[in-house]
Amino acid sequence: MTIHHEKRGSEKLLEAWKARSLTEESVKEIAAALDKSPARVVSANVVGGANATGIQLSLSYSGDDVPQCGNDILFWLKWHRTHGGVVNPPRIIINGIPWPDLVNIDLDFGQVEKTAITTPGTVG
């Protein structure tokens, strides 16, 4: 009996999906979403060098804009469904319990290696 060592098509598909590079279209979609969002962009980093694979965004929502963060998380999910990448869970920091007056969210788009990120000015 011959043992076949080739990977399943679905395995190859998942690997390719995770390794997708950023495209102009995918970046424009992020920019367009940020234009519509009330979030303040605290920081934006492109990773992958010349062959960019991902974007790290830190967003801040305050006051009445806080509930809008859910829309941006939904956009983030849908973006991955279209453009691929590794879906790292967002880092969400809420200031003010039970009524938050400040929410900071770190969103990774595409393929970003998870690193420890410190967002300045946060209070647990």
């Binding site: 080739e6 990977k7 098509g9 679905s10 190859k12 598909l13």
Partner: peptide, 9 residues
Amino acid sequence: TLTQYNVNS
């Protein structure tokens, strides 16, 4: 023709 190894195509 779909095989065990090519859905990625």
